[in-house]
Each structure stands twice: as C-alpha cells, then as structure tokens.
Amino acid sequence: MNITTFIIVSVIKTALVLFVLLTAVAYTVWLERKVVGHMQNRWGPTRVGPFGLLQPAADGIKFLFKEDLTPPHVYKPLYIAAPMLAVIFAVTSIAVIPFGNWFSVGNFRTPFQITDVNIGLLVVLGITSLGVYGVALSGWSSNSKYSLLGGLRASAQMVSYEIALGLSLVGVLILAGTFSLRGIVEAQAGHFWGFIPNWFIFRGGQFVAFFIYLTAAYAETNRIPFDLPEAETELVAGYHTEYSAMKFAMFFMAEYANMITVACLASLLFLGGWSGPLFGPSWLQQLLPLLWFFLRVFGFLFVYIWVRGTLPRFRYDQLMAFGWKFLLPLAIANLVVTALVVVLKP
C-alpha cells in the first residue's frame, strides 16, 4: 500500500468510526432513558419520532442553540479547555479498537480497525488515564465548592481504581502473550472440551479478573454505583455544575464514549471479540463478525444501564475501602494465581 492510499483509507476509516461512535453515543443515551424508564414503570422518551427515536437529534439541536453561559467567577482558559479535553481523550482511544476481521475487495485488504499497534491495550489505558484531567480541571476552574468537591472526588477515585483495573488485565496479558488487541482476540480462537469457546473469561480463573475489570471500569467512567463525582443529592451536579449548553453536552458525550470503550475492551479481552458462527456468501462472512461484536458491546451497555437502574450509590469511605482493601488485593491474588497456573502448566 503506498502512502497516498494509506492516507485516504485512514481518513475514510477515521471519519466512519467517528460517525458510528458519536451516533452510538447519542443512541446509548436514548437506550438508557428508555430502559431506566421501563425499569421505573415509566415510558421514557416517546414524543419525538417513533419510540422517541429522534430524541437524541432533538437534544443535540437543543444543546447547540441554548445560551452558552460562562459564570463570571471561573478561570476561563481551563474552564473552556476542560470539556474539550474530556471529549478528546474519550474519543481518541477508539482508534486502536478492532471491530472485526479483515475487509477485502479484490486486491485491497484492510482490517476493521483504524490502526493496529502492538501496544494497543497500553494505548487505551494511557489515553483513559489522561481522561481524568477533563474532570479534575473542570472542577477546579469552575471556582465553585460543588464543582471542586466533585473534581477532587473524581481524581481520587479514578487514580485509585485505575490500579485495580490495570492489574486485572495482566492475567489476560499473561495468557495471550501480546499487547495487541487483535492478537488477544486471535489467542481466544477455538474451543476446549469440544464445545466451550476459548474465551479468557472461562480460562485460568479469569472470571475473577472479569469481575474486577467491570467493577473498576464502572468507577473509572463515574457511573452508578460509583457516581460520587456528580452525586446530585449532595453536589448539585458535581464537576459540571457550572456548565451549560454544548460544554455540558461534551461531558455527557465523554461519559458515554468512555462507556462504549469499556464495553468494547471487555468484549475483546474476555469474550473473544468478534468470534461467532460464520455462514453464507463471502461478503456476509466479512460483515458477520461486526454483528457479533456489536451484540457483545450492546450487552455490556445494557448491563451498565441495568446496574444504574438497580444499585444505590456508595458512601465515599465505602468507595475508597472497596477499591483499596478489596479490589486491589483480589487483583493481585488473581495475578499471582494466573502466573502460577501458566508457569506450572506442562
């Protein structure tokens, strides 16, 4: 592939993935309102379009045309930069996520992924670890007590749970022997005992790692039951109290984009990525992996919303104790056991 085709293909893929991601973000909001609504015996959005399906578009237009208030007491440069940082870091990590196998037409062949790097997992972890700046800086620059408390809580919580999250993935890395997300998915091909798929969730006690990852990821994305940074009953809206219109929408988009990244990563690392039955003509065989991947991601997003509709919020000391005294030791134990299993296995 020469450089011109490379650039054209990359631009097209980036635009496509960005479009799909932002649409998915909008419709995850719709899904959440709908599902939580039904869980609470309400209808959720119904007025705009059939089943309220045009609600995200209406919300988008509303956010764009609302008055963009900037309170007089804020520290302006960071107040404006913070939501942008949040949304940039949330969207960037999708660049290394693979969605399916290879796409080929004639001689042309490209993976369903913007770029495959051999440290893919570390790139995702690195970018998500930078995401805390958006939240922390918005809390500080708003110059209001609720925002500051929310920002402080968010940075403490995200730094704490990042350790358990990172450690829970080491077991998978030991079993797969690579940082490349595509390589990790390929390491999960096939079956054992004839019928159980070779997914990491079933192998070497990684079910524990899966539990730790999912819990820590909920805390990383500031979702219920770990949504203390924006606990509305005590902090109004936490770190985005002083934001309105599109700037507020950016925080919203960042949160849902992060949820989607977490769902993608959980599917890739523990549930075999895009593996599934392939049948039919060759074009269908190329596109089916996308469907299987999408179904897994949808499942994880549904669980996210289900948890939100079910669990109450933690108290702050419970949150810290849970992270440091339960999840972290469990992650270390899981790591040691996995390493022993791999070393002792003939």
Binding site: Y133, L152, E162
Partner: peptide
C-alpha cells in the same frame, strides 16, 4: 496519567 494527576490534585 498518575503522577501529574496527583500534582494537580494537591494544587486543587
């Protein structure tokens, strides 16, 4: 992602 976040945290 970690050391500088703690710096910012302390400044805040």
């Amino acid at each position: 992602g970690a050391v500088m976040v703690l710096f910012v945290f302390v400044i805040m």
